Simulated scan of single mutants.
Amino acid sequence: MTRAQRPKRSPTPTSATFPPAEMLPPKPLSPTTVTPPKPLYLSSPFVEAALVNGNFKTIVMLPKYVDIMEWVAVNSGCVSSVFDFYTNLNEFYGVIAECCNQQSCPKMSAGPALNYTWISQDRKSVHLAAPTYIDYVMTWVQNLLDDDNTFPTKAGQEFPQSFPSTVKHIYRQLLRVFAHIYHSHYHQILHLRSEPHFNSLFAHFLAFGREYELLEVKDVKGSSSAPVGIGQLWEAWQQMGKLEG
């Protein structure tokens, strides 16, 4: 009789029997958070570019013997007024308007996750292409500035009681135009080498708005889920001493 042969066992695996490391399947990479690139307007030297050195508060303070309503509205010789901000912003936008069209700017964007909506006549929020939105804003503001009942131009004529709320609404809409230009067209501002002028205009606008309570911080910074791109610029200028906290 012959002894039945036992089945052969596989050898105990050792490091010598494993395939070399280069032959093993690659390990899955752990997910990494991709940090978006910093916007140009927050990058040096562009964030420092300005025509004015020091704090902008010094040029927005109410002069003696000047009526605050006229200072905020429009006054020949004033360096600060809603009329001046509108006029200068409109000129800047006019220079880059050909780059802001239905194809390049289908929405009024002001941040990676923020698109402004327009309130229609039936009180509904509607998305508009940026050039359409900005045209609506500029036309609306121009009509208000031309309305003698809203912005009186005759000596002794009283400002309406609704004037402060009207100016705040104008300021909020002009801020949105600034925000869109910074978010979508700052590279064109750089191409024109106009960043010191545009930065100075916007810093002046912010300082004036905060000095006379025309601008809410929430409008500048947005929400945590939809931040306004220029909110970081405002904070950077505060740290640099250009704007008050």
Rank of each mutant, 00 (worst) to 15 (best):
T150V: 15
T150D: 03
T150G: 01
T150Y: 09
F151G: 00
F151R: 03
F151N: 01
F151P: 03
F151Y: 15
P152Q: 08
P152E: 06
P152G: 00
P152A: 03
T153W: 09
T153N: 10
T153L: 13
T153F: 12
K154E: 11
K154R: 09
K154L: 11
K154W: 08
K154S: 09
A155G: 06
A155Q: 10
A155L: 08
G156M: 05
G156P: 04
Q157Y: 06
Q157R: 06
Q157M: 07
Q157G: 00
Q157T: 01
Q157F: 08
E158W: 08
E158F: 10
F159E: 00
F159W: 11
F159H: 01
F159K: 01
P160T: 09
P160Y: 10
P160D: 06
P160Q: 10
P160L: 11
Q161C: 09
Q161S: 11
Q161M: 12
S162W: 08
S162T: 15
S162D: 09
S162C: 12
S162F: 09
S162N: 08
S162H: 11
S162V: 15
F163Y: 12
F163Q: 02
F163I: 13
F163C: 01
P164H: 04
P164Y: 01
P164W: 02
P164V: 13
S165F: 06
S165D: 14
S165M: 09
T166L: 15
T166S: 13
T166N: 14
T166E: 13
V167E: 12
V167L: 08
V167G: 02
V167M: 09
V167C: 05
V167T: 13
V167K: 06
K168P: 07
K168I: 02
K168S: 15
K168T: 07
H169Y: 10
H169A: 14
H169S: 15
I170K: 11
I170W: 12
Y171I: 00
Y171W: 06
Y171C: 00
Y171L: 01
Y171E: 05
R172M: 07
R172E: 14
R172F: 01
R172C: 08
R172W: 02
R172H: 07
R172A: 10
Q173D: 09
Q173F: 10
Q173M: 13
Q173W: 10
Q173P: 05
L174S: 04
L174C: 05
L174P: 11
L174F: 11
L174Y: 15
L174M: 14
L175T: 07
R176V: 03
R176W: 07
R176Y: 04
V177E: 08
V177S: 05
V177L: 07
V177Y: 12
V177H: 11
V177I: 15
V177D: 07
F178M: 02
F178K: 06
F178G: 00
A179Y: 08
A179P: 06
A179F: 08
A179C: 03
A179Q: 10
H180A: 02
H180W: 04
H180N: 04
H180C: 03
